[in-house]
Structures are given as C-alpha cells and as structure tokens.
C-alpha cells in the first residue's frame, strides 16, 4: 500500500512538474522548424538552403565562435535579425514569429548545442 501510494505520488509529481527536458524539447522543436532550414540538421551551418546563400550560416556547434558571442547578442540576432548585430540580412527577424520566452529558450538551447557558455 505504502509503495503504491509512493508510486502514485511520484507519478503525479512527474505529471505536474514540467521537467527541464520538456522545456529543452520544445526549444529543440522550435529550432527544428525555423533554424534548421539554414543552420541544418547537424546545427553546423549546413542546412538545405546553404547552396543558395552568399554568406555561410553560423555553425552552432562551434564552441569558440559561439562562446565568444554573448547571450544578449544571440537573443538580438534571433529577434531582430542579422543586420541588428552587424551580420548578414540573410539571418531574418524572428521577433514576429517567436515570443521573447521562446527566443530565450533558443538561446539556452544554443548553449547546449555549442557546449559553451557566455
């Protein structure tokens, strides 16, 4: 009885508390819809649109390059586009499509992808 109660309690707790991995998954899904078209399935700047791009998209697995870019710059680049951070116009503005929280989630996700922090 005690074990059942405990199992039920743990199950309920798991259901109620959105775990960190769920939050990550959602950012990963968002990356998969919007970012993959240029940054690629491997997240290294080799998306399906790359042959048509005059500027290579950022390699998000590049720990050095990504490590040198602070969170607020990543946030600004996603929200306002490449031009806002003196980069290419080919990086569009996603501020109309994604909420600030979703963009913050993406910045966090990028840190996981590059295994680097700033």
């Amino acid at each position: 009885m005690k074990t059942q109660m405990l199992a039920a309690f743990v199950g309920l707790a798991l259901l109620l508390a959105p775990s960190a991995s769920q939050a990550d998954q959602s950012s990963e899904q968002i990356y998969g819809v919007y970012c993959v078209q240029c940054h690629g399935l491997q997240r290294n700047g080799t998306g399906i649109n790359v042959p048509a791009l005059s500027v290579k998209p950022r390699d998000h697995t590049d720990a050095k390059g990504m490590g040198d870019t602070p969170d607020d710059e990543l946030f600004k680049a996603i929200k306002e586009g490449g031009l806002a951070v003196n980069k290419s116009v080919l990086m569009p503005t996603w501020g109309h499509v994604l909420s600030e929280n979703q963009i913050k989630g993406l910045v966090k996700y990028l840190r996981q992808v590059c295994k680097c922090g700033k």
């Binding site: 690629g40 080799t46 790359v50």
Partner: peptide, 19 residues
C-alpha cells in the same frame, strides 16, 4: 522542392542537408 513540411523531408547530405 524539399517537400512539405521541409523539416520532415530533408536528410543529411555530404556538404549540406538535401531533400
């Protein structure tokens, strides 16, 4: 050209993702 929705119909290629 890459299918619809593209993010379900592309795969890794030699240099970049391909349909």
């Amino acid at each position: 050209p890459a299918g619809y929705p593209y993010f379900k119909t592309v795969k890794k290629g030699d240099k970049n993702d391909v349909p």
